[in-house]
Amino acid sequence: MREITYLQGIQEGLREVLKTDPTSVIYGQDVGAFGGAFKVTEGLQAEFGEARVFDTPISESAMLGAAIGMATQGMRPIVEMQFADFITTAMHQLLNNAGTRHYRTGDAVPMVVRVPSGGGTGGGPFHSEELETYFCHMPGVKVVYPAFPSDARSLLLSAAQDPNPVVFMENKTLYRSVKERVGDDLTALPLGKASVRHEGDDAVVITYGAMVHEALRAVSELHVTEGYEVMVVDLRSLKPYDLDTILAATAATSRVLVVSEGWRTCGYAAEIATAINESAFHLLDAPVHRLTAPDVPVPFAKSLEDRYRPAAADIVKALRDLIEL
């Protein structure tokens, strides 16, 4: 066993794909010799050569279009968007060109798009966005979002084995802050399986990405201060998502808080809340609550971004309101 960071987890997943799948390539802006804006691909070009890991022009749409072309001709492209925010200039390639292709033609489109996501880094409006709702809204596209190094590694493998376009969301604040002891055995994790990160029966927090860690901090604080036992469910896959685990957690706790770093209106948290209401309304002791970012652009100043982005203290307060309702 050895300790790796979230970033190392992604990198080990990428290395494993390059090693085991000779049709795989990694490309994006500055991912080659430079190793990427966050150094996720550092060393991979030196190890696997410029044909397997290479830089492209700043052309998000051409990058994704080319990935569709490669994927339909026997290759396995893994494309890095430098920041999630920049994929919006190529959304049609994902929604219309990749996502509709299998339905219309029956052709498999096995491609992975890595999108470094989320705020809390002082990145301002265009280097902080959390866009899972956009991706999850697209028919034909799958979305995963690991919160831990071992999951990042395993989900990268699963994404690269899936015959569909998969958006692999990775949270920038977790790259170096989250560590985990792991073995050397790399196995793919089935998509669509959530993980219960903390047991409890007073309430459940259903969340994903960086908010899993905020939730874990919140529930341990609530345990110390009030003695509450709160379950934390880490969704890991956002589309498809693990409705069975969500409903089991609802049945076990009867009080549900959904936490998302994304925007509120029509956001991913609304989807989860609705799914619970449709299938498990009779199990609830309180309405499903949402804690999300407000519907404002991601602000730059620390004072503003601290207020903007849900954190452990906000989750503590929301849980208290929910449990004591």
């Binding site: 051409a62 990935a67 026997g74």
Partner: peptide
């Protein structure tokens, strides 16, 4: 797809492969 110009990069990627 109906988005004009968007297929050029697709065939470019296909040729690369």
């Amino acid at each position: 797809i109906s988005h004009l110009g968007s297929m050029i990069s697709v065939v470019a990627g296909g040729v690369m492969a």
